[in-house]
Design a protein around this nucleic acid. Sequence first.
DNA 1: CTTCTAAAGGAACTTCAGTTCCGTTAATCT
DNA 2: AGATTAACGGAACTGAAGTTCCTTTAGAAG
Lengths: 202, 202
Amino acid sequence: MNQATGAPGTSRPGGRTARVREAVLRAAGDALADKGIGGVDLAEVARLAGVGKTTVYRRWGTVPGLVADLLAEMAESSLPRARTGALETDLAALAGLILKTLTDERQGPLFKAVIAAAASDPQTAAALHRFYRVRIDEWAPCVAEAAARGDVPAGTDADEVVRALSAPLYYRFLVSGDPLDPDTAARAAAAAAAAARAGAYA
Amino acid sequence: MNQATGAPGTSRPGGRTARVREAVLRAAGDALADKGIGGVDLAEVARLAGVGKTTVYRRWGTVPGLVADLLAEMAESSLPRARTGALETDLAALAGLILKTLTDERQGPLFKAVIAAAASDPQTAAALHRFYRVRIDEWAPCVAEAAARGDVPAGTDADEVVRALSAPLYYRFLVSGDPLDPDTAARAAAAAAAAARAGAYA
DNA sequence: CTTCTAAAGGAACTTCAGTTCCGTTAATCT
DNA sequence: AGATTAACGGAACTGAAGTTCCTTTAGAAG
């Protein structure tokens, strides 16, 4: 007597269920990347994934629900931070990583679509915030180590420095439409380091 | 013989046509602010505006088309910049203005929806970029004047300083979900000023 | 290997956003 | 003031996204 207590996929997560999830998330990522959030319908995703549309509607229900699951998947495959030994170079490495992600053929449009989805759906927003919480936690130690070395004032808010570095890249990407190039990334890293040294985040 | 050469509303823009446009844009703003981009349909907007839905479909066609027109309208009512006489205080005034806009009951959700729409629609994106081009052009002179006074290095990129100030606020608003408060705004202004003085934008 | 049932799949159905058609209203020009 | 026609508006129509119902497949347990 093993009744289904939760959502579909929780009680028998192995084998076929896992293959279906993988195929659907992959197809969803493809569709999001090339049509954006408005252009995705679940029946199309099901067709691309080679899966019955009933299955997609039953397990994910709506486009934002599917996007939230996709984000949870993406959070798992987060890269480890750089350890160059100096604040400026660590931050430059992070800026380069963000630049590479946002300008990537597939990842860029995907992030754009996901952030757009989060703007109008609380479930997606929560998943997005968790995603960036993980990223910031991964990279903040760069700043903490710099503080320990005395490169930035004691009491500097490490999270804030990471955000300050990321922000200009995302701002261009989402809001102003100004170009995103290695120069921009380098300047974002340099500016964050300079402001941190000046004690703007203490 | 005055045949209609352009889109509806171009050949007889006065009177009723203008009233309809005003009512529809107002209703569209309300709907966007409280349902977000995904939750708006043109028939509902028409009903709220007290206008035939055929009219809305004929003149604006799609939700992004309507949003683009709304943005063009918003760009007209841009506020003049502050002139406090010092870089830090000018930048603090701008940060305060952005904070006020993004946390406003109506304007905040509206901006969120509009930026989300721009993520998947080129027409909306173009309108959004024009909007921020206007804002940056309005405020960049603060930095140029500071450079003339010798407060920041000669050759500092004024536009870049304004973006650097705006970015952390928008990043929190759209991406990370961290709180937006006067403290954050003050820190964004201080950091932009510090980085500019250090020559990070020269 | 057999049993049990969670999860997938197919097909018909429903609902509603978006379109089309055509009659009505009112802005502009003489 | 009267004529012209751009633009509005109501109502019926269309098509596809999303739902429901029932059957089939295959993962987990004994």
